[in-house]
Nucleic acid binder design. Structure first.
Lengths: 205, 205
DNA sequence: TGCCGTGTGACAGAAACTGTCAGCATCTGC
DNA sequence: GCAGATGCTGACAGTTTCTGTCACACGGCA
C-alpha cells in the first residue's frame, strides 16, 4: 500500500499519461530547437520529426506555434494566484505578494540558466514577446480579481486593475533588468526590490 | 508667394505623395473591412482588391497583416514623447505628463466612436491585442528614456522603467475602463483620473 | 472477448508571407 | 527636354502555418 501512497497521484490511466508525455516531448523538443537555431528558423516539421508525430497532431496540443512560449514559460502563475488568495486580507498586500512568490516562483527561478534562455528567446523574437505580453495581460485580469476580493470586490475597478498591473509590471521589469546585467545573481531579489518600489508614489503630486 | 507659405510643407515629390496615399488607402480599407466583418474573416486579398493593388504590394507597406493595427492606432505617441521631452525638468512629472497629453492625445481621443471601434477590435482579436501590447511595450522603453533625461539619466534603471510602465499602464487601463462603461464620456478624463492614482503608493508598506 | 470513445495519421486546401525578376513611372543631371 | 539612374509595381513560384475531414488503431470498460 505504501507504493500507492508514495506514487505521485495514482496514475490517471495509460492513455492520459501517454498524452501528457507527448505534450512534454513536443514542448521540450521545441525549446531545444528554438534555443539552438531560433524560433523562426524552426519549423513545425522540425519539431514533430524530433518527436515522431504527425504535424496535424502538433496542433491538437498547441493551437499555434506561438503558444509553445506559454508552455515554456509556465513557472507557477497558477500557484501564485492560489497562494495569494489564501493570505489573510488584513495583511499588507506587499507582504502577501512576497509570501505568495516564495511559495510559487522562487523555486523555478533558481534555475537561472533556464530563466535566462527563456528571456533570451523573448528578447530575440518580437512575435513571442507579443504573445507573452498577452499572457501577462491575461494574468493581470486574474490577479485583479484576487486583489478585488481583499478590497472592494470590484475586479474591473481602476484602482484594482492598476495595482494588479503594477505588480505584473514590477515582476516583468525586474526580470528584464536582471537579464540585462551579467551577474548570475538571485532573480527573486530583483523582483522583491522592484515590488518595494511600489510602496512609494510613482508620480510626484 | 503666399500660396507657398500656406502649403503644408512644399510637396515632397509626386512619387512620395502617391506612396503615402496608397498607404492610407490600404489602412483605411482594412479598417472598414475589419470593423465590418472582423479581422480573421478579412483576407489580404479582400484588402488589396478594395484598393486595386497586388497582394505583393501590400507587404511592401506593412510587414505583416497584424501591423495594420499599429497604423490604425496611431494617435500621436510620437508627439506625446516630443511634448513631454520639452517640459521643464523641474516641473512635477504628473503635470508634465498631463500637459503633454493635452497637446497630443486629447484631440484624437475626442472622436469617441473611432476610439471605441479600435478598442472593440482589440477586444475581439487576441492576436491584435498581443501586437498592440508589444507596441505599448516598445513605447514604454522610449518613455523611460525621456523620463531618464529628467532624473538620473539611466533609461534602463528599474525606477525609470517602472515609472514609464506605470504611465503606459494608467493610460491603457483608463481606456479599458472607459470602454467597459456605456457612457460616451470624455476619454481624457478617465486617463487623468488613472494617472492621479499613481501619486499614491500602489502597495502599502 | 468485444464494443465504444478518443487520439492519431494522411490528405486536401486556405491564407500569410517571401524571393525574384521584368516592366514602368518618377527623378536627376546634363 | 532628354537619357540614364532609381525605385515602385505586378506576376509568379514556393514555403510555412493552420484547418477540416475521415478512416484507423489503441486503450478503457463491461
Amino acid at each position: 500500500m505504501d507504493t500507492v501512497l508514495l506514487a505521485s497521484v495514482p496514475p490517471p490511466g495509460l492513455a492520459a499519461r501517454k498524452k501528457e508525455r507527448t505534450r512534454q516531448q513536443l514542448a521540450q523538443a521545441a525549446a531545444q530547437l528554438f534555443y539552438e537555431r531560433g524560433y523562426d528558423a524552426t519549423t513545425i516539421d522540425d519539431i514533430v520529426t524530433a518527436v515522431d508525430v504527425s504535424p496535424r497532431t502538433f496542433f491538437r496540443y498547441f493551437p499555434t506555434k506561438e503558444d509553445l512560449v506559454v508552455a515554456l514559460g509556465q513557472t507557477g502563475m497558477g500557484s501564485f494566484l492560489d497562494a495569494l488568495a489564501e493570505r489573510p486580507a488584513g495583511e499588507a498586500l506587499l507582504t502577501s505578494v512576497e509570501r505568495a512568490i516564495q511559495n510559487s516562483f522562487e523555486l523555478p527561478w533558481q534555475d537561472t540558466t533556464r530563466v535566462r534562455s527563456f528571456l533570451s528567446l523573448l528578447h530575440d523574437t518580437p512575435v513571442l514577446r507579443a504573445r507573452w505580453l498577452e499572457e501577462s495581460n491575461h494574468n493581470r485580469g486574474l490577479l485583479a480579481a484576487v486583489i478585488a476580493a481583499r478590497t472592494d470586490g470590484d475586479p474591473s475597478g481602476t484602482r484594482n486593475l492598476l495595482i494588479a498591473g503594477a505588480i505584473v509590471l514590477a515582476i516583468d521589469t525586474a526580470l528584464q533588468v536582471w537579464f540585462n546585467q551579467d551577474d548570475e545573481d538571485n532573480v527573486a531579489a530583483f523582483v522583491y526590490r522592484a515590488l518595494a518600489e511600489l510602496t512609494t508614489p510613482l508620480l510626484s503630486p
